[in-house]
Amino acid sequence: MNTVTIDVRTLTDSLSDFAQAWKSEEASEPRISFDSPELLWKILTAKRWTILKAMAGSGPISLREIARRVERDVKSVHTDVHALLNAGIIERHTEGFSFPYDAVHVDFLLKAG
């Protein structure tokens, strides 16, 4: 199964891991990182999670097909898909949009302070 981990990490930590992965011959796990839980929830709203779920493992699909799968109007799905695209979470192809993972693992710690 092709799984991506979504987490909350500082830019410094993310760049450090990237540099280590660049030097290593082993493939690292795919990861999408956010600088704060607030930014994660701002980008990944409940409706956008539904879009990712509908797109997972599907290959490129059209905007209209995404709207049909999530049972929403094309205009509002367009706004959400482009927010996910701009955040680097989904990809654009000539055939449509894709979320190139079968599953998502979310990993972050919420602590006082």
Results as ranks from 00 to 15, higher is better:
R92I: 01
R64T: 14
L63W: 03
I43Q: 06
A83L: 12
D17G: 13
G88W: 11
I90S: 08
S58T: 15
E95T: 06
E65W: 04
L39R: 14
A56L: 07
T94G: 05
E91H: 01
T45N: 12
K23Y: 07
D73T: 13
D17H: 10
I51Y: 07
E26M: 11
I32D: 01
V70D: 06
V77R: 03
A103Q: 07
R9K: 15
M55G: 09
A56S: 15
K75N: 14
E91C: 00
A54F: 14
T5N: 12
K111H: 04
L52F: 12
V74F: 11
V104K: 00
L44M: 06
E29Y: 04
M55L: 09
P100G: 02
S62V: 00
T79G: 11
T94H: 10
P100H: 03
R9W: 06
S24D: 11
A67L: 09
L84P: 03
H93M: 11
S24R: 07
R31K: 12
A56C: 09
T94V: 08
A112G: 04
E38H: 10
D35I: 09
K23H: 13
S28R: 09
R48S: 00
H78G: 14
A83V: 11
T50A: 14
A87V: 00
T3L: 02
L11D: 11
V8I: 09
G113F: 09
I32C: 00
F108N: 03
H78P: 10
I90H: 05
G57F: 06
V70Q: 05
E29V: 04
L44Y: 00
D73W: 11
T50I: 10
